[in-house]
Simulated assay, not measured.
Amino acid sequence: MSQSPLPRPASHFSSGSPGDKTRIVLHVGCGRRNPQKLHPEFRGPEWRELRLDIDPAANPDIVATMTAMDGVGSLSVNAVWSSHSLEHLYPHEVPVALGEFHRVLGPGGFVLITVPDLVSIARYIAEDRLDEPIYVSPAGPIAAMDILFGCRALLKRNRTHMAHRTGFSPKTLESALASAGFGDITVRTDTRFNLWAVGHKRGVEG
């Protein structure tokens, strides 16, 4: 399908003062400030973006890796938004990052994730069309090779942190979220070779 799975209505959990209904979305791997990088779910006035990135040049609110988000308190945010970040980790780091996402979420909070869908490009690989452009991005033509290992145009410019070190299918992404403690998980694909997943933190506001 062409859109991400929409989460259920967000919890009334608030990380602010009593009576404060402002909700906080932790934007993991935010890059340089750009409101368009936020999923539309988080662009309303009820949401406040908290930006986290490993690169100080991006001027995030918090400089940290997603595997050690010590600057984000436990139970302190209502949602985590991760767009094309998890695939830059090594496989053994993915459970650590998802554990961090789960830790910082308040009860009833949710995570919204998008990553490349390796299943959708499998036929290009099987048909030996690894270098055939599939679509055009702002960085240029994208082939199965770029989806597998990272955009070569960016890597050529020495942006080696953009390399892909792991990958996901719908089954493995759902399994990873479940193993991290998330429930009510939905995983879908879109027409741009992406997976979208929503997972909810169990529990209610006490």
Rank of each mutant, 00 (worst) to 15 (best):
S2D: 15
Q3Y: 13
S4Q: 04
S4Y: 14
P5Q: 04
P5L: 01
L6Y: 09
R8W: 11
A10M: 10
S11E: 08
S11Q: 09
H12V: 15
F13H: 02
S14C: 14
S15E: 09
P18E: 14
P18M: 11
K21Q: 12
R23K: 15
I24R: 03
V25N: 00
L26G: 10
H27L: 12
V28E: 00
G29Y: 06
R32A: 14
R33H: 10
P35G: 01
P35E: 02
P35C: 03
K37F: 07
K37V: 10
L38D: 00
L38H: 03
E41I: 14
F42N: 00
P45F: 03
P45K: 06
E46R: 15
W47C: 03
W47E: 01
W47N: 02
L50V: 10
L50I: 09
R51P: 04
I54H: 10
P56S: 04
A57H: 10
D61T: 05
V63D: 08
V63L: 06
A64R: 03
M66A: 10
T67W: 04
T67P: 05
A68D: 13
D70R: 13
G71A: 03
S74L: 07
L75V: 08
N78F: 13
S82T: 15
S85K: 00
L86V: 14
Y90E: 13
P91R: 00
V94N: 01
P95Q: 08
L98G: 02
E100I: 10
E100Y: 11
R103H: 11
G106N: 09
G106E: 04
G106Q: 06
P107S: 11
G108S: 05
T114A: 14
P116K: 06
P116H: 12
R123D: 09
Y124D: 13
D128P: 02
D128F: 15
L130H: 07
L130S: 04
L130M: 09
D131F: 15
D131K: 08
E132H: 04
I134Y: 07
I134F: 04
S137P: 06
P138R: 07
G140F: 06
G140V: 09
P141M: 02
P141G: 01
P141W: 01
A143E: 00
D146C: 09
I147R: 05
I147W: 06
I147N: 03
R152G: 10
A153L: 09
L154S: 12
L155N: 13
K156L: 12
N158F: 14
N158H: 12
N158I: 12
R159D: 14
T160N: 11
M162K: 05
A163T: 06
H164S: 03
H164Y: 07
T166E: 11
G167P: 02
G167E: 09
G167Q: 08
S169Y: 03
K171S: 11
T172H: 03
T172L: 11
E174F: 08
A176C: 13
S179P: 02
F182D: 01
G183F: 05
I185N: 03
D190W: 07
R192W: 15
F193D: 05
F193W: 13
F193N: 05
N194Q: 15
N194P: 02
W196V: 06
W196A: 06
A197R: 02
G199Y: 01
R202Y: 04
R202W: 08
G203E: 05
E205A: 10
G206Q: 13
